[in-house]
Nucleic acid binder design. Sequence first.
DNA 1: ACGTCGATCTCGAAC
DNA 2: GTTCGAGGTCGACGT
Lengths: 256, 256
Amino acid sequence: MSFLTYKNPSLVEAASVIRDALEKHMLIVVFGNCRVDYEGRASSTLEWGNRLVIIKTDGSVLVHRPIGYEPVNWQPPGCIFHVEVLDGELKVRATRLHPRETLNIFFGEVIHIMVSSLTDTGEFSLYVSELDIKKAILTMPSLVEEGFKPISAEKELGESGFVDVLGEDSRGNLVVVEIKRVSVGKDAVFQLERYVKALERRVNRPIRGILVAPEIQKEAQLLAAHRKFEFKPISLKRCYEVLKLEKTKKLSDFMV
Amino acid sequence: MSFLTYKNPSLVEAASVIRDALEKHMLIVVFGNCRVDYEGRASSTLEWGNRLVIIKTDGSVLVHRPIGYEPVNWQPPGCIFHVEVLDGELKVRATRLHPRETLNIFFGEVIHIMVSSLTDTGEFSLYVSELDIKKAILTMPSLVEEGFKPISAEKELGESGFVDVLGEDSRGNLVVVEIKRVSVGKDAVFQLERYVKALERRVNRPIRGILVAPEIQKEAQLLAAHRKFEFKPISLKRCYEVLKLEKTKKLSDFMV
DNA sequence: ACGTCGATCTCGAAC
DNA sequence: GTTCGAGGTCGACGT
């Protein structure tokens, strides 16, 4: 893994370093005084200040101020770059097609550059997503309620979108399950309402709506109660354990 | 503005530099080989690899891989930090309360550290937001249609939320305006429908629904037509010009 | 290619 | 404090 730093380079030197690194698809970190403008889905300008500019190996760009999680300006992966020194400023242009958007960074002073051809093969795993909750419910339907039997997942319901899980309860009622990973808000209740109503237009039997999530917001609770929807709390940890168990089981099946 | 870099520091040196910089609320950029785990709203692990870790002056943390716009792990502003060298690893812990979340970064090797007490006072301005479109419409109601007269903006309609702009047309009909900055999707149509229906329960006169945005999605167009809602295309540039004009006008009023 | 939906969303404003 | 909506959202998945 190559790694190089340049302290207080001239703008011409900086331009050369950045051009070379872009060609080799290296990670580039520039610290310096710059102004930025953007033109695309919206337009923005950022006046002079000291910032951290990161150009990644996939052609994405981040302009970070000293505060805030989010970059003040950016460009998603896949940009085409142009670097030049013009009127005493180092201009880095990152252009994206579809949609057509341009980010221009003008450095008046480059304080530090770091370039590296780094490799990062480390695996990233996130434990419980909304899809994981669905998988956990399909694996262990009793997470919704005792006697619940899934019929299908993600059933298309015309303009109303998809049902997270469709099933039957122990008394033969249709059950529409709406899953939220964190908290049931108003939206989830309205969505479930749309699904249930769309289903009621198609079939002629009792339909129950159940909201499944770790928690529900107060207002959503009222809206749900008003529509006779039920709320079933679920634990992310429990879902994670159900999925891990399932994985181990499948693995042991394979081993035998 | 102070600025310091450290190349290939020992883990103990690195810990000392980071601790000191955290105390002074400096911007810290660390490049090194690390593994990361996170526990909070979800849980995640990231195996060993070379990454760029940024700790900002407001206590936010970003862990960036060589590709992707988004950080692989992060922590929003306001974290409490703990730095220690343990079992041959430099551990940086960033804890957040509300919700309780912990990010642990374990460095096996630190390749480069950059610390700086940077200042960045440059103003950032984005030209046209959704609010700007509303302001532009309130300033120049003909953007919606000739003869449109706004009555109020952001009218509360119970559980249906807020109306972007409520007004009257030239023939005395009530007009509900739903604004989207980029494109009218299904959601906007459903939202407008909720507003119109909520309003119909309250007043007994004709109500029109108008969707205002630079463009409309095909499916949304059908849904809108089915509900007799109209779509009024609007240009972001035009809004920007209307607002700029208004600003200049106000300024000149002040000057006189 | 386009549309839909989730996100450790983040961020800000309003209540 | 909570709730809600917007975002240049981004990113993933399905058609």
